[in-house]
Nucleic acid binder design. Structure first.
Lengths: 189, 189
DNA sequence: GTCTATACCCCGATAGAC
DNA sequence: GTCTATCGGGGTATAGAC
């Protein structure tokens, strides 16, 4: 692996674990196993590397969503597959955790890829729900965009609950609750 | 207001805005309008002050929940009142944001009041839901604790979505989606 | 391209006067 | 109880050799 790639991967992990303000150049170098000079040769500085690392983390999330949201299956089954995919619960969300970082929140270069990822995710879920409603698989009592927002929010909040209590099962409970509510939208044949 | 109280209030605001690792003693003093010596006279240090400030923030949240979850009203109306109460969306949750702080997550003294607050909130919501089911106001298709977890998670995630896009309406959309799903549990008379 | 050495500043805490 | 002065350490970036 290239030195540049080692830096991006190390930074991506640290952003996930500690956020932007909680990650120092020294920690990046130690995690990546490269020397001081390499960081400032390949990137303008911490922020520049962070943008690349955030994009790498976003791509991982998007790929996992693509793999689970596709057919086969009715809308409910596709949503269920997405919600129940394997996750490292207590580590939280690689992208969502950054919304709480005070520097990311006010820095457009850092926040932009975060915003893009949430918009993308919401659009994909909304498509699945709208298609399900059109095919008569789901009741159309709930606006697809609102339901997609509630699903993404429950995921993000599930991580919060689990981390608050150091207990993965709090995430599972929230997802069970949501799935039970969504299941009430499945149209009986 | 006492100097001690100024310190607690200033720290509570900064923990909300910037988290624990993002808050420096210098910022605390500036926000509180007190001198360097006062901090270390009234508290052992940053951590000790933070514990007091987290408890102060938790009490604000609990009071708002008490005021909205009480009767009058059927279970759905009480949940709706709780979910739609006035909030400073883009500032995020005073308590939930701390779950993403790398220091709070690993420090029991800091995390304990966060965990306690989430357990308390979930228990109050679960009571409202279980009572509603017993009174026949709600279907009993969803476990009360799971539904309470989904509600708290959607709130927490709603803040995440809004902050990711610098747009309060993303919070509102998630809550609308959740309320529409919860409304499907209201038993028709 | 990568290394070591170093600059400069702010972080969190302490000292000691008043 | 509050103040100013100061400490040791680590955060972020740069210099310059190889």
């Amino acid at each position: 692996m290239s030195t540049r790639q080692k830096l991006v991967d190390g930074m991506a992990d640290l952003l996930w674990e500690r956020g932007y303000v909680g990650t120092s150049p020294a920690a990046i170098l130690e995690r990546s196993g490269v020397g001081q000079g390499s960081l400032y040769h390949h990137f303008d500085g911490k922020q520049d590397l962070a943008v690349a690392a955030i994009q790498a983390n976003a791509e991982i999330l998007k790929q996992a969503a693509r793999e689970t949201l596709v057919p086969p299956g009715h809308a409910y089954e596709r949503l269920e597959r997405f919600l129940l995919r394997d996750r490292e619960i207590l580590r939280g969300c690689r992208i969502g955790r950054l919304t709480q970082d005070p520097e990311v929140y006010v820095n457009e270069a850092l926040r932009r890829p975060v915003e893009d990822t949430f918009q993308w995710m919401r659009a994909r879920l909304s498509e699945v729900i709208a298609t399900g409603q059109q095919l008569g698989e789901l009741e159309d009592a709930v606006d697809p965009d609102d339901m997609a927002s509630a699903i993404v929010a429950t995921l993000q909040g599930g991580y919060v609950l689990a981390r608050a209590e150091h207990d993965e099962s709090r995430f599972a409970a929230a997802i069970r609750g949501l799935l039970a509510l969504v299941h009430s939208q499945v149209r009986q044949p």
